[in-house]
Amino acid sequence: MNLILLAIIALGAIGLISALLLYFASRKFAVHEDERIGQVSAVLPQANCGGCGFPGCAGFAGACVKAADKGSLEGLLCPVGGQPVMEQVADILGMKVEASAPKIAVVRCNGSCENRPRLVQFDGAQSCKVQQMTGMGETGCPYGCLGCGDCVEACQFDAIHINPETMLPEVDEEKCTACGACAKACPRQIIEIRLKGPKGRRMVVLCNNKDKGAIANKVCKASCIGCGKCVKTCDKFEAITLKNNLAYIDAEKCKMCRKCEEACPKGAIHAINFPPRKPKAEAAPAPAQAGEKVPVATATPNVQNTQNTPINSKEQ
C-alpha cells in the first residue's frame, strides 16, 4: 500500500514540476504572430504546393497579411483555391479582390503513338529530365512530350496522368488547380498554364515543335508546321502569332470563332470543350450518300480526332 502511495506521489510530483516548466517555457518563449496569419491559413487549402510562389500555405498567408497592411492584395492568388478562397482571405483581412479568371494546365503536344511513332526505345532511368539530356527522345520530335511522367510525379492533386494508349499526359479538368508544378517539371516546357475559358472552352495549338515546316511535318502527323494559315484567318482579332515556326493563340484575345481550327492543314489547333459541331449547310446532303466521306471530315481530317483529344472533359 505504502509502495503504491509512494509511486503515486512521486509520479504526481514529477508531472506537476514538468507541467510548471512547460507552462513557463511556453509563456517565456512564446512567439507572437499576427492572429490574422492563422486565420488566413485556416481557409487556405493547405496543399503546400508552392503554386502561389511562396513556400507553402503559411508563407502565402504571411504574404497576404503583409500585403493587406500595405493596402492591396493585388498579385496574390492561390491557384489551388482560386477565387472563392481569395474572397474568404479578403474578408478576413477586410479587403477586396478583383476577379481573376480560372486557369488550367494544358499539355501542348498531340504526338500520340499514332500521330508520332516511336523510332527508338529509351531504356535509361524513366525520367523526362534524363531522357531530355540524351537528345531527341524516343520519337523524332525534339520538342514533343517524352512520356515518362515527370509531370505526373510533380502533381500533388492527382490531376494529371499518362494515357497508356497515347503515351501523353491527360489533365483532369476537375482536379487541376493550375498550380504550375507540372509546367515546372516538364523539361521541354510543353505544359502551359492557360486561361480555362468560358465554360471551359478554349482554342489551343497542341504542338510545341519549333522546327521548320518540312521537318516538323515529317516527325509528327499532328505538328504545327508554321504555315501561318491560322494567322491569316485570325487577322480580325490578331489573337494568333507565329514565332519560331510555331503558332500561338493568345487566350485573352481569342473570340472562340473556331475558324483557325478549320484553317489548320495539320489539325494542330484544337477546340476544347465545344459542343460537337453541326454539319455545315453544304455538307448536309452528304450523309445521304452512304459510303462517301463527309467533305468536312476530309478537309480537316483531324477534327474528328479532336473528339478523342486528351483534354476533352466529361462534358461531351
Binding site: 535509361g124 532511368a125 525520367s127 529530365k129 534524363v130 539530356m133
Partner: peptide, 12 residues
C-alpha cells in the same frame, strides 16, 4: 541502378 543518368542531370 541508373546512377549516372541521374547524376548527369544533377551535374548539368
Amino acid at each position: 541502378r541508373p546512377l549516372l543518368d541521374h547524376i548527369r542531370v544533377g551535374k548539368a
